[in-house]
Design a protein around this nucleic acid. Structure first.
Length: 580
RNA sequence: CGGGGCGUAGCGCAGCCCGGUUAGCGCGCCUGCUUUGGGAGCAGGAAGUCGCCGGUUCGAAUCCGGCCGCCCCGACCA
């Protein structure tokens, strides 16, 4: 590629809207341009990176028996009615009517699409197991996209779906996918990606892992034990939380004027916050009942955990709703509320504490010495608390710490959620109709590109792993008019290409500062510089961006040397993947 | 959806509070000359519905109202 005609203006200054380094380089290096909030066009440099990532994804999916298909972005409402998600998913699912008034949706994921496709193609146990995948646009009308391609509304995802006869078979294949994912990230130059236990969210299913790239730019909070043996998304993380058992004392009603928060109450009564019970109300559970959640006063409710228990998204309740069950906002407790009209969910931290302060369901009054077993008999405690840094690791080894990370991929054991609701069956040996068990496996392509940029750059630009670099070699020519410079550069450009190397050649008569700055933005791992100064000795200068070294070598050795660098760097990434 | 910020040339910004000729600056772009190792110098030039609509006024980038868009924080998020 000649830079004189490469489409995409590179910016000298950091665009105002960029908050992450990767976002700034995405725009400065002319990889992508925003069209609307969370919607991007890709320029040649960016699309070259994307295509290389997609090639790795295809190779690794094919390697584990995947069959590539392509499903549409636009799907009829009926399919999403079948799965139940037309109603259960919120406004991030774009719904619209076509010319004839037929309701349609833009796929935000493709379970419905793949069920439609596969349920009519499979009828025998002999056809199982299998996996299909595609690389396709998704649209999610995110309330808040950010970070360039880290979180876009329209984005490209590789999603794969496997179908099995047994849970054991799914589990085996899940491990195979897990390995494939590690190979993908290793080959893309980010072997440090970690697999962590995750929430299954709206996908349903049981077992799920997220593949997380640790970086402060990430949006997810990852809980990690000291030796790294325990890893989980904060949404599902459990911890060993210090308990404070006490022998029960008699309930005692105390006047607590105006103390509507835990902080007020603890301060007024001069007790630590952990000596209180925090009551949080949510609008409804799956049965439509108001939900009262209790955690120890120094703790917060983990709403992802709660959502699983109440089988509904936790939406805060209004004061009116709270009073409807006989509780008083700010002074609430489960004692005295209509237990049949209200779902009471109590965390283990409450069960493991004695003599807590809780509301009296009467303005300006609290009870002291609440004890779950005595005062709310028959209510079992569950885990709905959010862990904190410093809590004990559930594996008993050390304390938990928090880190930030980007979710670059995920894998789910879906079970029969979709095969059942969308009626996919096969016939087994005995002629009986059976429902396949499903797994699904996603990787965001653009997010992966941005993530690599986020963890592999210097102050001047991205430093691409050779496997996904838009170009493998950058060729610069300084002072084209000087004797031999243009000729040597042109010859090298031709010979490098002939040697199968992807080279971007700055054939503009720009000053060195401009050329080097823009080369840094394009991020090729290897650079060759032709200049009058070194040409006098028959040499060109070389620089290896990732390694950080540089030097000169005879012009005649440049192509072969570059070929060697590219091959060695590619081989190293492959080796890293094979070593897993 | 709540809170905050911002829309002025391709990019980054000033001007707005306190209305007043042809709306500025830096970078970039075009032409010419000089220059050539980390975003050059000189000279000349092109490029703007000041986000949109309406209102106030003799006069609006500037004041008022409505709308739209973008960014950040929060809520939300396979």
């Amino acid at each position: 590629m000649r830079m004189s005609v490469l489409v995409g203006r590179r910016y000298k200054e950091r665009p105002a809207e960029a908050t992450l380094d990767s976002h700034a380089f995405l725009l400065r290096g002319a990889y992508a341009r925003q069209v609307a909030n969370g919607i991007y066009s890709l320029l040649p440099a960016g699309y070259r990176v994307i295509r290389k990532i997609e090639a790795i994804l295809r190779e690794e999916m094919d390697r584990i028996g995947g069959q590539e298909v392509l499903m549409p972005v636009t799907l009829p409402r009926e399919l999403w009615e079948e799965s139940g998600r037309y109603g259960s998913v919120g406004s991030e699912l774009v719904r619209f009517a076509d010319r004839t008034g037929h309701d349609m949706v833009l796929a935000m994921t493709h379970e419905e699409g793949v069920l439609h496709l596969c349920r009519n193609e499979i009828d025998s146990y002999a056809q199982l197991p299998f996996m299909v995948y595609h690389i396709q646009t998704k649209f999610r009308d995110e309330p808040r996209s950010r970070g360039g391609l880290i979180r876009a509304r329209e984005f490209t995802m590789k999603d794969a779906y496997s179908f099995h006869r047994t849970a054991e078979d799914l589990n085996d294949y899940y491990q195979v996918c897990y390995q494939a994912y590690q190979r993908i990230f290793a080959r893309a130059g980010i072997p440090q990606v970690l697999a962590v236990q995750s929430d299954t969210g709206m996908m349903g299913g049981s077992v799920a892992h997220e593949f997380i790239l640790l970086t402060e730019a990430g949006e997810d909070t990852i809980v990690i034990s000291e030796d790294g043996g325990y890893l989980a998304n904060l949404e599902v993380a459990t911890g060993v939380i210090e308990a404070f058992p006490e022998d029960p004392l008699p309930l005692e009603k105390v006047h607590t004027p105006g103390c509507k928060t835990i902080e007020d109450v603890a301060g007024f009564l001069k007790i630590p916050e952990r000596k209180t019970a925090k009551v949080v109300f949510y609008d409804r559970d799956a049965d439509g009942r108001p939900v009262m959640a209790l955690v120890r006063g120094d703790r917060d409710v983990n709403e992802a955990k709660l959502a699983k228990i109440i089988q509904a998204p936790p939406v805060p309740a209004t004061d009116e709703r709270i009073r409807s069950v006989g509780a008083e906002p700010g002074f609430a407790s489960p004692m005295g509320v209509d237990a049949s009209a209200c779902r009471i969910v109590v965390d283990h931290t409450i069960a493991q504490s004695g003599n807590l302060v809780t509301g009296a369901n009467e303005s300006d009054y609290h009870f002291m010495n609440f004890n779950l077993a005595r005062d709310l008999p028959g209510v079992d405690s569950v885990d709905i608390v959010e862990v904190k840094e410093g809590d004990g690791s559930p594996d008993g080894k050390g304390a938990l710490a928090f880190r930030r990370g980007i979710e670059v991929g995920n894998i789910f054991q879906l079970g029969t959620k979709y095969t059942q609701s969308m009626e996919m069956t096969y016939t087994d040996e005995s002629g009986k109709a059976c429902t396949p068990i499903m797994g699904c496996y996603g990787i965001g392509v653009g997010r992966l590109m941005s993530s690599v940029m986020e963890v592999s750059h210097d102050k001047y630009g991205p430093i691409w792993p050779v496997s996904i670099a838009p170009w493998q070699v950058q060729l610069n020519a300084i002072k084209l008019a000087a004797p031999g410079v243009r000729e040597t550069a042109e010859t090298l450009y031709r010979d490098l290409q002939a040697a199968g190397i992807e080279v971007v050649y700055d054939d503009r008569d720009e000053r060195p500062g401009v050329q080097f700055a823009e080369a840094d933005l394009l991020g090729a791992p290897f650079r060759l510089i032709v200049s009058e100064r070194n040409l006098a000795n028959g040499c060109v200068e070389w620089k290896r961006r990732a390694v950080g070294d540089s030097g000169t070598m005879p012009v005649g050795e440049a192509v072969e040397t570059a070929r060697g660098w590219v091959d060695a760097a590619m081989a190293e990434l492959e080796r890293a993947a094979d070593a897993l």
